[in-house]
Design a protein around this nucleic acid. Structure first.
Length: 415
RNA sequence: GGAGAGGUGGCUGAGUUGGUCGAAAGCGCCGCUCUCGAAAAGCGGUAGGGCCGUAAGGUCCUCGUGGGUUCGAAUCCCACCCUCUCCGCCA
């Protein structure tokens, strides 16, 4: 959500931003409604002040007659205000965040800039398998029975792949704790305000599962970002010296509407996966540096797993509505001969904190916090990267050195 | 799921026969006085937000949330949310 005062004072900037963010909401319409709204409020306030003054002690019968009339006028103004406010709000919540100046302009993923590559892509002297083939031959993934029980895009993980996920979770959690982040296990069902506050509603509503639609107002989270961001909602937090840094494990649920036929083999895209996410509440002065720090933490993580990757600076047309700026880290997937998204590092400035009402005190000034989020480790995709990059000629999979300690010293996954 | 109690400012907690109550008191916090300094004591200040205004300031809204009754509501009515206690059930 943008500050209405900012829009009032910088309509051209907002219009320009809408253009590069592919948003078609009319800024002029917003300004018109805003003006209407303020006029109505002023009128109503004036009359209400009159009414209040007149009602202080017991008024005479004559005075009551007048006050009654006044009350009617106020009611009329209030009724006129209702549609104006709801229309204004409807438009405001559709506006994307203001784009940071360092973000390249572009219409889709073709506009993203590769700003770094790391690691040597493995050279194989044998015919490599993709992760689905490896999963089948080593009895690690059962997609057929997943579909039988729950439908398409569901699966069972089995045997050493399960143990590998537990090892990864343990490794990633320890890694983040050692970086000074507070470990969390959040609720995976949230109410509507949490979804709205983080920006998933209204923009991505059709991506979200609603539970017991008629009975409960609960939604399955698509990422731990939602409960983490909402953790401090309606609070004033103390972050002038140090930001508040958290990481959380959660399962993630996504409807994947409109992805028919996309990534249908293996476990690259499913309705449910496990992920560890980091989330930071930061003051406005330190947040841009924090964003770079978070990217650096991610890079260190992938380097420790020795997964080749590159970093993309996402363009204006390919970032989500809450983002002011975003980096993606894409890992090398040898069987697809391409990079695929492993992590997404976003700076949302005060877009979420305005909706969630999270502030901090800077001296005697009250300001909205900046929120940042970044994937630590999405288990499924990470395991694909491990399986494919670490596969051996004999069909086995080597286990990355840093994970072996969490698997009782096991070095390989083999039949 | 059944029965009951309750949600007031950073915290504790008054206020429920509707009328200068956005709200007593205490704690906490900030400032000043006293002191070489600190403590104690005394004095003063101390919620958030909208709108108008360069500002000073003015004005309105908010006592869980949303509606309603009334000239006037923290106080009355309705719906919802949350917390606590007891019973039942349960990983």
């Amino acid at each position: 959500m943008l500050d209405i005062q900012f829009i009032r004072e910088n309509p051209d900037k907002v219009k320009e931003n809408n253009k590069i963010r592919k948003c078609h909401v009319s800024v002029d319409e917003i300004l018109k409604l805003d003006e209407k709204r303020r006029a109505l409020i002023s009128q109503a306030d004036e009359k209400r002040a009159e009414l209040k003054a007149g009602s202080k002690s017991k008024p005479s019968p004559d005075a009551i007659k007048e006050l009654k009339a006044l009350g009617g006028e106020i009611k009329k103004l209030e009724e006129a205000l209702v549609p104006v406010e709801s229309e204004l709000r409807e438009l405001l919540i559709q506006l994307p965040n203001m784009t940071h100046e360092s973000v390249p302009e572009g219409v889709d993923e073709s506009g993203n800039q590769e700003i770094k590559t790391w690691g040597k892509k493995p050279a194989f002297n044998f015919d490599i398998k993709d992760h689905a083939e490896l999963g089948a031959s080593l009895d690690l993934i059962d997609t057929e029975r997943g579909a039988k029980v729950s439908g398409s895009r569901f699966w069972y993980l089995k045997n050493d792949l399960v143990m590998l996920e537990f090892a990864l979770m343990q490794y990633a959690a320890t890694f983040m704790r050692d970086k000074g982040f507070t470990p969390m296990l959040p609720p995976m069902l949230v109410r509507e305000p949490a979804m709205f506050g983080t920006g998933f509603f209204p923009a991505d509503k059709n991506e979200i599962y609603k539970v017991n639609a008629d009975e409960d107002d609960l939604y399955l989270i698509g990422t731990a970002e939602v409960p983490l961001a909402s953790y401090h909602s309606d609070e004033t937090i103390d972050i002038m010296k140090e930001p508040l840094k958290y990481f959380a494990f959660s399962s993630c649920f996504r409807r994947e509407a409109g992805t028919y036929g996309k990534d249908t083999t293996g476990i690259i895209r499913g309705h449910q996966f496990d992920k560890i996410e980091m989330f930071v509440f930061c003051n406005q002065e330190q947040s841009w540096e924090m964003h770079e720090d978070m990217l650096a933490i991610s890079e260190e993580f992938w380097q420790s797993l020795k997964i080749p990757y590159h970093v993309l600076l996402m363009c204006s047309g390919d970032i989500g509505a809450p983002n002011a700026k975003k980096y993606d880290i894409e890992g090398w997937f040898p069987a697809q001969n391409t990079y695929r998204e492993l992590a997404s590092c976003s700076h949302d400035t005060d877009f979420q904190s305005r909706r969630l009402n999270i502030k901090y005190k800077d001296g005697d000034q009250s300001k909205f916090v900046h929120t940042l989020n970044n994937t630590v480790c999405a288990m499924g995709r990470t395991m694909i990267a491990i399986m494919e990059n670490y596969q051996q000629k004999d069909g086995s999979i080597e286990i990355p050195k840093v994970l072996r300690g969490y698997m009782g010293g096991q070095k390989k996954i083999q039949a």
